[in-house]
Design a protein around this nucleic acid. Structure first.
Length: 537
RNA sequence: ACGCCAAUAGCUCAGCUGGAUAGAGCAACGGAUUUCUAAUCCGUAGGUCGCAGGUUCGAAUCCUGCUUGGCGUGCCA
């Protein structure tokens, strides 16, 4: 209803402009950029310019021309025309408010993220991907998409072979007392030893071969799932790269199609895809001279598979090292009739891990590593997720492990959670039930907000804006926008709460109604972003 | 060398179809509350928005050049 009112006002401004100046202009109201300013239009600047008028006069004239009926006010501040809606409108809006999930829009989306190689534990970067992927999938669900979360397991190719041979050496070293010579590219860290131990039986029975790889993958994935459980993330599908190579059918299809289109050629004993013909800056190797397929080849097969599964859209969340790979893949896919818009790749920028005041170079191979588990253990899942969710995806970020550990009790996530806990606290004191209990009672049916204070109005305004922020966050694939907006709500709430005692107030009933509504909203958003909403802290 | 990403307070980061006085948290300093949990609130201090041009009534935001850091660049994944 606020939307309608705003559209209404916008139309009034348009017709005022038409009447006075005979001018047509876009008078869509923008959200305020300063505290206390709800909506505004800078139209006077543009009109002043094009009509050769003084902008502030234009703003003045329109303001006085608008027929205000008490539901809003329009004031000219310099050349800005500011609009403010009445408290009654906000109160009415909020008394019907709930954090919406839109009805199904019939579209299916596949969101693939983390997809770390099954050769080591998850690290900080995976943590960032996990938090962002989780929140992003919620965003799509909110707007009616059918979302499928997917983890791509790179269990095919050379890294796996190297990992397998490392396991054999680690096993021999640990349990046979042999000294192993590791090659430059082999995995020497403690994790490798642990996995070797875990699948020791298999190594004993069938040294060598695919069986070891398979068991190793299973063991590593098992651990990864354990880590993900700690952040309440589960995937709808674990897709194994190796499954693409099972029958040879996929390889044949890709190669045949490219050959038919003249997009495949051989050079120096390797097979190339002619991506330059698809708008890319260079051609790429699909099959190495050694006879092995490259990662790109697998990716092409994988995304053809995704496309065939009937998704309307696919999103991949990748690390910065895959930056150039995105264009490469998207271009290549067009050769198979997959439109460019099908796949969006979000590049999650780097996370520098700072320890002892220094940037540490992590390596799965050598085990020089601070795992996600370790971080979750020492600072907790919510602070970790919040940390990643409050930063834009393209931002390079520093994760200072020491500072984080030391200051984890001050994490800004608690600021949000405390808002929810405070609301529950009041309800518990008054009714002996928490928010859920209250909402189940018949009391919940008779919420009236009455006449709201300016501070309440500000809070409701911020909640109202949240909807638009979510929509923007979706189109920009930036969950951080939502998280940061929650901070604003919390800031206003805490100020309100500090300054106004609810129980015992003349407006007690109405204020209770207000915080119940707010509590519901806060819980929805937090849960939706993958953050706990605790009733007590 | 080329391509992509970034650069905002001491630190970590917001600031998103160009708007008004650039904002939070942490760190520093000063206050409030013997509470509906102070995990809070109020205040002080802290900025040539990397540099230089340009476009615009208006630029942290758009364009160009440069600097610095990161990632990548035909057979790593």
């Amino acid at each position: 209803m606020l939307d309608e009112k705003l559209a209404d006002i916008s139309r009034s401004i348009s017709s005022a402009l038409k009447d006075i100046y005979g001018a047509d202009a876009d008078t869509t109201l923008k959200r305020g950029t300063r505290p206390g300013i709800e909506f505004f239009t800078p139209i006077s600047f543009e009109l002043g310019k094009s009509l050769g008028l003084e902008p502030r006069d234009v703003a003045q004239k329109i303001a006085s021309r608008l027929k205000m009926d008490g539901t809003f006010s329009a004031t000219a501040d310099g050349a800005f025309l500011n609009i403010s809606l009445s408290g009654a409108l906000y109160a009415d809006y909020f008394s019907h408010y709930h954090f919406k999930t839109f009805p199904a829009n019939g579209k299916k989306i596949n969101i693939e993220f983390i997809s770390a190689n099954p050769t080591g534990p998850l690290n900080v970067v995976s943590g960032r991907a996990a938090a962002v992927g989780l929140a992003l999938s919620s965003l799509y669900r909110k707007f009616g998409w059918e979302v499928s979360r997917e983890y791509y397991v790179n269990d095919h190719g050379n890294q796996m072979n190297i990992f397998a041979s490392s396991l054999l050496k680690a096993y021999a070293e640990r349990f046979k007392g042999e000294t192993a010579e590791y090659a430059e590219n082999e995995y020497t860290g403690p994790f490798t030893g642990e996995i070797a131990e875990e699948i020791g039986d298999i190594i004993e029975k069938a040294p060598g071969g695919d069986r070891i790889k398979k068991e190793a993958v299973k063991a590593v994935i098992g651990r990864i799932k354990g880590t993900l459980k700690n952040i309440s993330l589960d995937f709808d599908r674990w897709f194994f790269e190796s499954s693409l190579y099972e029958t040879g059918e996929n390889e044949g299809y890709v190669l045949d199609t490219l050959r038919k289109k003249g997009l495949l050629y051989e050079k120096d004993g390797a097979l190339f895809i002619k991506n330059t013909a698809l708008g890319d800056s260079q051609d790429w190797v699909l099959k190495k001279s050694s006879g092995e397929y490259t990662y790109l080849f697998g990716d092409i097969m994988y995304h053809i598979d995704k496309f065939r599964r009937g998704y309307d859209k696919a999103i991949n969340i990748w690390g910065p090292d895959h930056l150039s790979g995105a264009v490469r893949l998207i271009r290549a896919l067009t050769a198979f009739g997959i439109p460019e818009e099908f796949l969006s790749v979000i590049i999650l920028q780097q996370v520098n891990l700072i320890k002892d005041g220094r940037k540490i170079q992590m390596s799965k191979r050598t085990g020089n590593f601070i795992g996600l588990d370790e971080i979750l253990d020492s600072v907790g899942a919510d602070p970790t997720k919040y940390f990643f969710l409050s930063k834009g995806t393209s931002q390079h970020i520093d994760f200072d492990f020491d500072a984080f550990e030391k200051e984890s009790e001050k994490s800004p996530v608690f600021y949000l959670q405390y808002m929810f806990a405070r609301i529950n606290g009041v309800l518990l004191k008054k009714y002996g039930v928490d928010l859920d209990g209250f909402l189940d009672s018949e009391k919940a049916d008779e919420l009236e907000l009455g006449e709201i204070s300016p501070m309440q109005k500000e809070i409701i305004y911020t909640v109202y804006v949240l909807e638009a922020v979510c929509a923007e966050a979706l189109t920009k694939n930036e969950p951080a926008m939502v998280m940061n907006h929650m901070n604003e709500i919390a800031k206003k709430f805490h100020r309100f709460y500090q300054g106004e005692r609810i129980l015992g107030s003349e407006r007690e009933e109405e204020l209770l109604g207000f915080i119940v509504k707010l509590g519901g909203a806060v819980r929805s958003v937090l849960t939706f972003m993958g953050i706990n909403a605790p009733q007590r802290m």
